[in-house]
Design a binder for these strands. Structure first.
Lengths: 301, 301
DNA sequence: GATTTGTCATAGGTAAAAATTATCATAGCA
DNA sequence: TGCTATGATAATTTTTACCTATGACAAATC
């Protein structure tokens, strides 16, 4: 390993361009002896003379000429680091690895992606859709920067910010449209279609009906809300979906959507990230954007 | 311009690899606080956090990851400079721009090039054949590193080392072989063929004959010794050539070679370079090689 | 839930590095 | 032979970097 310093490289570069110790020193805003000493030390570090000093001229040696271009490349690369840093501070630039649970992703992402790539083209958004437990693990391990999921997460290592509250709505076959809306008790008697194990939304729905998730149930779990709604449309049963999913999921199925009477089942959706992350500012900005793009879907539902 | 130092880049590299301040510090042979401070200053210099510090882990930020590879490249380039310097010290490595006058070059170069490229394959020999005045100018201007020519040059800015002394020999038509060898006085009466203006050898020959170079002469100047010898072979006149040229030039022409009686005309051939050159050692080594390869040609002549 | 442990940050003093000013040495020039 | 230009060297000061000691804090452990 060498003992070269960037300072020496900068002085060398100046001297190689100007060919004059005094002027090179001036261009570096230092005194001439300071430059002389640093050049000398650089030559000692390399073990090779870099300049030929004669009475009236300072000339690069053959070796000096050979490394001059390399030195310039190095200095350029170093200065580029600074420029790169400066540019990546603006416009939310840089990578953002965002995880989203499956009962939100399909309804939020189209607008969110559109908005972010349009407003912040220098942001490199990497998305991951999976269930809460995996999101939390990946967030802890630093493989995600943030996640959008149902609160609370209650991890002291995470910061949580709220995005919106949304109700769960009942989806029934279209012909049930004028029947009274059941309450949570009577819901227990109906054939309730749910997402498979692992989805937080499943647990939230069960909790609303006061059913123990562990209990053996004659179940027909679906792997997505779309599947559930299709099954409802086919008359197999009823299901709950979050408000944000309503516009998309009930568009093409002959089903009826009903809100429950108060107290409605609700969930709180939020965004979480490691408390220790250095990009809190960016993440707060992103959470504002999410809040904004989620609003219309919620109002419509 | 940034204030980054190579030291910071090295510490950053260590920390980015090891992910632990204590161990990274150890690998840099410094204390942990020293490393903490330098990393912090690097982050301040760039204006961007490079690491995310949490209780049990140190992780690169997105930006840190992006520059890690660049930083490694920079460090590698810098270390390469040192290796490059080290390797270019050995084996006379590196460029050597050598000038040689035309009355030596054709007789010395074949062997010299062979020897140097064989013994010192890492030497980059660049040759220039021209007359003394140009060699001296180019040497002064730093466009040549050394020159082989007739001494003395008497430039105080130059170092001169002797290579060899050689006699001028008389070249006559073959049929003159048994005639007595003329002295310098009688030579003046003969038709003496000489190199054109500018060759030092022309002046040396004229000087031997006590002829003013400036005097108008019925002249038939040749542009090379080969031409002169061919002209002698054709019976046009006689000429002088240096000993080193004898083996080559008299091989195929029907001419006779004769040495003068003492005091023989002689010239001293040497090598010169700028006193300020940093490669005196190399040049002395090269001059030894030249002396060695010139010897056989001289003995033969 | 109090304590210990692991880990990074900060502070104060010291050592090392680099800068400054003043001065010297030397080569080219008048 | 002194004069000028230019780089090297010396002595001193300023700046930078480092070390030891200590603090803060979260995770792990008792």
């Amino acid at each position: 390993m060498t003992n070269l310093t960037l300072r020496q490289l900068r002085y060398f570069d100046a001297l190689s361009r100007l060919g004059h110790f005094g002027r090179a020193a001036e261009s570096c805003s230092i005194s001439q002896p300071a430059l002389s000493v640093q050049i000398k030390e650089m030559e000692e570090n390399l073990g090779v003379p870099l300049f030929e000093r004669s009475a009236r001229q300072v000339r690069l040696t053959a070796f000096g000429e050979e490394i001059a271009e390399r030195v310039r490349d190095i200095l350029r690369s170093v200065d580029d680091l600074g420029d790169f840093a400066r540019s990546s501070q603006q416009d939310l630039a840089g990578r953002l690895r965002l995880g989203i649970i499956p009962t939100i992703a399909p309804y939020l992402l189209p607008k969110l992606i559109g908005h972010l790539t349009h407003e912040y083209p220098r942001m490199d958004l990497q998305l991951r859709e999976t269930q809460t437990s995996k999101l939390i693990r990946e967030l802890s391990e630093g493989r995600l920067d943030a996640a959008i999921l149902a609160l609370p997460v209650s991890e002291p290592a995470f910061v949580e910010v709220e995005l919106f509250d949304e109700a769960f709505v009942l989806v029934r076959p279209a012909e049930d449209d004028d029947k009274p809306v059941p309450d949570s008790r009577s819901l227990r008697e109906m054939r309730l279609l749910l997402l498979e194990e692992g989805h937080c939304f499943r647990d939230q729905a069960l909790s609303f009906c006061n059913i123990q998730s562990a209990l053996p149930r004659e179940s027909l779990d679906g792997s997505s809300l779309t599947t559930l709604v299709q099954m409802v449309g086919a008359g197999i049963g009823v299901t709950l979906i979050p408000e944000i999913a309503v516009p998309v999921e009930t568009r093409s199925a002959s089903v009826s959507v009903a809100h429950f009477a108060a107290p409605q089942p609700m969930r709180k959706v939020g965004m979480v990230w490691r408390r220790s992350t250095p990009m809190t500012d960016r993440l707060l900005q992103v959470s504002d954007v999410v809040r904004k793009v989620a609003q219309p879907a919620l109002l419509q539902g």
